[in-house]
């Protein structure tokens, strides 16, 4: 015997029910809901079958959408483990944003808390690539602009990194592992010595590159912007070489990679 719930109560019941994709007591819960809710059925499909169409479809859509942004993580896990991961992830972090693209934004942290480190790092890299891909646009600082700068303007010149910059400090060969996984190679994910990676967008394409600890530290400063004088001072504190020389070397590399934003 079903009663007629309010629209709000109906939606709350269905929201709970439609979130159970990937759970083992799926069929029992569908049958129970079909007995309580005013869902129509016919000879072809009983009410529980009709509810089940949505339950399956919703889980598969979200699972597959997340897989698009984590192709290597998914490949590393394989189909069954990926499905299990996403079911567990969605129970811990139900999708709460209108943009499906943002559904997996907690996935790297979830993996970091619950899974092996190298796998979490793979997911962190793939999410950084996605974030960089859609980060705010900016006007690139060109070498010609610096060439025109008066010598006395250099110390106060603001050096700022593109909003698409992401910095990672993995402890596994995450960049190479990702490439191998995408190329279809068998990969054993295991820890290695720590290093630093920068991820950034150039000409609408996203790149990543290994960097040394000095550049990593400098780029952390550049994310919020720093004057050239303060950058040189920081380099003097962290490197024994001539800070101006190091700053110029780094600047040249960053300009070539279109990593800096015009003031």
């Amino acid at each position: 015997m079903t009663t007629t719930p309010s629209l709000r109560d109906l939606q709350h019941e269905l929201e709970t029910l439609f979130s159970i994709g990937g759970e083992t007591d799926h069929a029992d819960r569908l049958a129970d809901a079909a007995g309580r809710l005013p869902i129509g059925g016919d000879d072809r499909l009983a009410p529980a079958d009709r509810l089940g169409i949505y339950t399956g479809m919703i889980f598969v859509r979200i699972r597959d959408a997340i897989a698009e942004d984590f192709p290597a993580t998914r490949t590393a896990l394989g189909d069954d483990a990926w499905e299990d991961l996403i079911a567990r992830y969605l129970r811990a972090h139900p999708t709460d944003h209108p943009d499906l693209r943002l559904a997996p934004r907690h996935l790297p942290g979830f993996l970091r808390a619950t899974g092996p480190g190298p796998l979490a790092e793979l997911a962190e890299l793939e999410w950084a690539l996605m974030e960089s891909f859609t980060a705010a646009d900016s006007t690139v600082l060109r070498a010609t602009t610096l060439a025109d700068l008066a010598p006395d303007a250099w110390p106060e010149m603001l050096v700022r990194a593109t909003p698409s910059l992401r910095l990672l400090t993995p402890r596994s060969d995450v960049d190479r592992n990702r490439r191998r996984l995408l190329d279809g190679e068998e990969v054993e994910l295991r820890p290695t010595s720590p290093y630093a990676l920068r991820v950034w967008r150039r000409d609408l394409r996203v790149f990543h590159k290994r960097i040394d600890p000095l550049e990593h530290g400098a780029l952390q400063l550049l994310r919020s912007g720093v004057t050239f004088a303060d950058l040189c001072a920081w380099l003097a504190d962290h490197d024994e070489s001539d800070p101006s020389e190091v700053a110029v070397r780094l600047l040249q590399a960053w300009l070539a990679d279109e990593l800096l934003v015009a003031p």
Partner: peptide, 22 residues
């Protein structure tokens, strides 16, 4: 349609009851 409840978005286009109240 409706797409979620309690701030959870199911990312599906879910049908409504066709009533005067709705």
């Amino acid at each position: 349609c409706w797409t979620g409840a309690r701030r959870h978005n199911l990312h599906d286009l879910l049908p409504l009851p066709w009533t005067e109240e709705v």
